[in-house]
């Protein structure tokens, strides 16, 4: 069949203008829901990066008392090395610790010079494969029989065992809460936008019911009858998505630089690639919402 796509576009456009208030409502709800999706994804990306940078810093440090017995240390070190959850175990001697300290304070060497002797303890630095295992590994280290003999404060082991537990925990909790809240909000908004779209399509069907009756009468194919309405829904979805993408791009231009200025210690960046990906996701979402909304209307109000 030689049907020009121009026909469908024209029909969809006409009906779009006829019911522009409803169409606007549909577009705005799609816009908001997609904007939320976009913000959610961006926040997700940013938090992921922040987490990654924090996780790099997650390392369990076991500080050893001066004059510990090496025969106590060896079994602990071996058991740690053999642990599958552990990436690496590094022994840092008192001298190495002092070297590092010197490097860190290279700007003001007098601090080190004033030290009478080396006050820094030797330590084991344990790096994990997955930062989420940190609590379990800490418990295991504490339970090791040689642990109490190695540390300076056996009555309060927390002092000699350092890891970034609190930060990690809070970040995980926060992201989980944000995730749930946003998913619920987005689901609600998507639902509302589908209802909006299906309503505008229903109006469009109603406005053209005579034409539809005649189209059926003379044998227009079902898809020919449905196509302008599907297209109208998709158009609304796409316009909503375009608006949302625009706002996301603007946010990337202004909000991200502002964030990285305000929070210099956190790596806040959003690559162009990630933005393009996000744009595609939003466009796909918009089309899907428009399509499903209009299919819903067609099934209910257009029996062809």
């Amino acid at each position: 069949m030689a049907i020009s796509p121009g026909y469908f576009l024209k029909e969809a456009g006409v009906s779009f203008r006829r019911n522009w208030v409803m169409s606007l409502g549909a577009i705005i709800t799609i816009f908001f829901s997609l904007l939320l999706v976009g913000t959610f994804v961006i926040t997700g990306i940013l938090i992921q990066e922040i987490l990654a940078s924090v996780e790099e810093k997650v390392m369990i440090q076991v500080f050893l008392k001066d004059g510990y017995a090496p025969e106590d240390l060896d079994p602990l070190q071996t058991s740690l090395v053999e642990d599958a959850r552990i990436n690496s175990v590094e022994y840092v001697s008192k001298e190495q610790a002092l070297e590092r300290f010197k490097e860190q304070t290279a700007d003001s060497p007098e601090i080190v010079d004033q030290l009478p002797n080396n006050p820094l303890p030797a330590s084991l630095e344990v790096e994990l494969v997955d930062p989420e295992d940190v609590e379990a590994v800490v418990v295991d280290i504490k339970a090791h029989p040689n642990f109490v003999n190695l540390i300076a404060n056996p009555e309060d082991p927390e002092k000699d065992l350092k890891y970034g537990a609190e930060i990690i925990d809070k970040l995980f909790q926060l992201t989980n809460v944000v995730r749930v809240v946003v998913i619920v909000l987005v689901a609600m908004l998507v639902f509302v936008s589908m209802i909006f779209i299906s309503n505008t399509i229903r109006l469009a069907i109603y406005a053209r019911r005579k034409e539809i009756a005649i189209m059926r009468l003379v044998g227009a194919s079902n898809w020919f009858i449905r196509m302008p309405f599907l297209l109208e829904g998709v158009m609304q979805g796409l316009i909503g998505a375009a608006l949302a993408i625009g706002v996301v791009v603007v946010m990337r231009q202004w909000l991200v630089p502002w964030l990285s200025d305000t929070l210099p210690f956190l790596p806040v960046t959003l690559s162009a690639g990630a933005t393009a990906q996000l744009g595609l996701i939003l466009a796909a979402f918009g089309v899907a919402i428009g399509l499903i909304g209009s299919i819903f209307a067609l099934r209910r109000y257009l029996r062809v």
């Binding site: 069949m1 030689a2 026909y7 034409e211 189209m215 003379v218 194919s221 020919f224 009858i225």
Partner: peptide
């Protein structure tokens, strides 16, 4: 013409 248009006649 509508009757021909909607069944895809040229």
């Amino acid at each position: 013409a509508f009757a021909l248009e909607v069944i895809g006649r040229s």
